[in-house]
Every structure is written in C-alpha cells, then in structure tokens.
C-alpha cells in the first residue's frame, strides 16, 4: 500500500503547481500621508532604482585639461572612468597603458594616491615623512604637477609606474603610465614631453 501511495503523493504535489490566483481584495488602512508631488520626471522613470551593482563612480566634471599625445601612442576609447586612454605597444608585443582620470576633491591627498599606485605594483606604503623624497614637482602651463616614478612587481617581470597628479579647480587629475619597466623606461622621455603639453581648458572635456 505504502508503495502505491508514494508516487501518488508525488503526483498530488505536482498538482500544486496550479498558479496562485490573484483576486480583488479590500482592506482598511490608516490614513496615508499624501506624498509631495514627485519631482521632475527622471530619465529612468521605470527603472527600479539604482542597485549596488551598477553604482556609478562619480568622476570630476567642470574645467578640464587638454593634451597632445605622441603619435606612436594608440588612443583607446575613453570610458565612464577615464577621460583619456592610450596604449603603447613594444615590438615584442608588450603593452603599457596610459590612463587619464579625474575625480572630485583631492581623492585622499598625495600620500594616499602615491600609496595606492605603490600598492598596485606590490610596493609597501610610504610614511608621511618619506613622501617628499618620493615625489617631484613641476610647473607646466600654470598647472602644478606632482610626479611619481616607482618600480616594483616581481623581480623577473618588474613593473614601473610614472605618473602625475594635478589639482584642477575642485578636482584632481591623474596621468598614469604603467607597464613593464623596460617599456615604460623607454617611454619616459616621451611621457615627460607629453606632460609639457597639458594645459587647462575652459570647456568640459
């Protein structure tokens, strides 16, 4: 008997799959405070709100910078995060990446930013007192640049980052050339020349 009942019970369970039927309902609720009229139409009227997965990172707007890159750097499409982006490819096929980003505020200050770059090539963070020794300063076209040159990464494949941090209005711009140490070393002169072409523009880039 038990043997026959079990499969039948399974079939009965399958019968449960009939849909939950929605019905007209009536109920009494405490008076609702009438909400203020919603603000002006949002562009994403039917989007159910921002989710944490697609949180946009605010990049800086406002006055921007212009520059001219050496001809042998290949421009890549700028993205939501990047104001500019270039690839530099060696004959061996190795590539270095130049990124131009901008964020509101001072993004934590020079020490935090230099240490962030150091962390990216497995270098230990610097203390406050060590910062001045690790950075250089440069004035270009009325802009004040803090430059950094660091080499780290695995001994067999050393990585090098040379970069410039530029405060512009209420934002901070970052020009960062990173890649295999040999390739970045070869491009050092080109990068220095490139930095000299950076100027403030009144228009938003």
């Amino acid at each position: 008997m038990r043997h026959r009942l079990l499969p039948l019970a399974a079939i009965a369970l399958l019968g449960l799959t009939s849909c939950r039927d929605s019905k007209i309902t009536t109920y009494r609720v405490p008076k609702e405070k009438t909400p203020a009229m919603p603000a002006a139409p949002a562009a994403t009227a039917n989007a159910p709100g921002a989710t944490m997965a697609n949180t946009a990172v605010t990049t800086a707007n406002g006055p921007g910078l212009t520059w001219s890159a050496p001809a042998h750097w290949t421009a890549k499409a700028a993205s939501a995060m990047r104001k500019g982006s270039y690839a530099i490819t060696a004959d061996s096929g190795e590539t270095a990446d130049l990124s131009i980003t901008a964020f509101p505020g001072d993004v934590g200050g020079d020490l935090a930013n230099v240490n962030r770059w150091r962390g990216q090539i497995q270098l230990p963070p610097l203390a406050v007192a060590e910062l001045s020794g690790a950075t250089a300063h440069l004035d270009v076209n009325g802009l004040h640049l803090t430059t950094v040159d660091i080499t780290g990464g695995p001994t067999a494949k050393p990585q090098r980052v040379i970069g410039a941090i530029i405060p512009v209005g209420n934002a901070t711009w970052f020009f960062k050339l990173s890649g295999p140490a040999a390739l970045v070393g070869r491009e050092q002169a080109a990068f220095a020349t490139f930095l000299q072409t950076i100027r403030a523009s009144s228009a938003t880039p």
Partner: peptide, 12 residues
C-alpha cells in the same frame, strides 16, 4: 472620506 482611515479596493 473618513479622516482616520482609508478603505481600499485593490484590483489586480
């Protein structure tokens, strides 16, 4: 109508 509560008829 009632100042304290609302009676709702919800039609799917």
């Amino acid at each position: 109508t009632d100042p304290k509560f609302d009676d709702v008829v919800a039609i799917p």
